[in-house]
Design a protein around this nucleic acid. Structure first.
Lengths: 208, 208
DNA sequence: CATCCAACATACAGTCTGTATGTAAGCTCA
DNA sequence: TGAGCTTACATACAGACTGTATGTTGGATG
């Protein structure tokens, strides 16, 4: 049958238009902020009209939520992709941290996910998204470490949330120009501090 | 000498109007969000016109910055007020944490300082404010603990920022209905974890 | 193939922000 | 003390944006 610029099925049209809108919005939301990006600019970038936007999304905020959702998924995918699954609990956590900090270096990602996201959607909604994507592997890693007696037992929910918050702040600071090595060292020290015994697996050299 | 409703000096007028605007804006910014609060509503609450607002503040964002500044000062004052200065390093940090979490229970404060603040003013500006108020005592406490050998030596800037981020997230979670005890336990565990010698029970404090 | 409905485009109403302009009251200094 | 300047506002205006209501076209369906 026909493809490309010719006739397309309704489902294809919807999918393509939604993808175009999300892509355009992502571009602008990462270049500028949510507040500084208007819907006229988004639809111009996407090559559609505002009618299409408001047909597919309830409002600007819903489009933003879709962008955040997709971006969180991308971050989670990059982390999963970068971490070999056969490491000690501690090394897996460190590898995950590094992968997260690396993923958050994508331009505009910290503002989108860590500043505008919580402000626009609320922290509860962001928690929900985080738990569905990124935080899941983190919490699993922590629980595994606790199960393996390599970590004192603590409320998993709270521990996950607070460590995730520290990771987030580290990503923000590093993007702002702070020393990545400093923040990495503190993050590792925070995690190591939770082990009842000093990290006996590998204690080779100071990371300086 | 002039009295109340009669003639007032220009300086008094400015001061009073600015205070009225900040008070009205604080009320609305804590009840609703920054984005949901319009300047017409603010000036109505303050009993002035938008002309007065834009005479005293460059824009809505500048008024918001003034509100954040004042609120951060209030939080710092509440913490200072609540913490007796003669405690061990560890106990002082715990007392400070509790005071911070208590102060952040004021309605709308978490959204103002932890969500809207970073999104509207940027994390760099919020860091600047935090360092001027709340974080200062936290960092001093941490540095003191490190100096007293009660804590492994780490980059003070990064350590302060990451612990502050954990405190912030804890305040958010507690307001969202999470268990304050859980988050408190994890925060204390994170800080204790940084001490080379595990504080088995409450250690006798040598310094007064 | 007639009908229905989804996928848009266009037009409109209401609100907001920031600025420009006008005015009355304080302040300064001869 | 009063003429002139400046501050502290109020009013009016321009531009932009968001969300909705309405119109139109083309795919799906019996």
């Amino acid at each position: 049958m026909q493809q490309g610029s010719g006739r397309r099925s309704n489902r294809d049209r919807t999918e393509a238009t939604r993808a175009d809108l999300i892509r355009a919005a992502r571009k602008l939301f990462t270049e500028k902020s949510y507040a500084e990006t208007g819907t006229p600019e988004i639809v111009a970038e996407a090559g559609v009209t505002r009618g299409a936007l408001y047909h597919h999304f309830a409002d600007k905020q819903a489009l933003f939520a879709a962008v955040v959702e997709q971006e969180a998924a991308s971050v989670a995918a990059e982390i999963d992709h970068a971490s070999p699954p056969s490491l000690s609990a501690r090394d897996a956590l460190i590898a995950g941290s590094d992968a997260y900090l690396a993923a958050m270096r994508a331009p505009g990602r910290t503002r989108l996910l860590l500043l505008d996201g919580p402000a626009v959607l609320g922290r509860a909604a962001m928690d929900e998204i985080d738990n569905r994507y990124g935080n899941r592997s983190l919490r699993e890693g922590l629980v595994a470490a606790m199960r393996a007696q390599a970590m004192t037992r603590l409320p998993a929910e709270a521990l996950t949330a607070l460590l995730a918050a520290a990771f987030d702040r580290a990503a923000l600071a590093i993007e702002a120009g702070a020393s990545a090595a400093d923040y990495r060292a503190v993050l590792i020290a925070l995690m190591d501090g939770l082990s009842p015994a000093p990290p006996r697996s590998t204690r080779p050299a100071p990371s300086r």
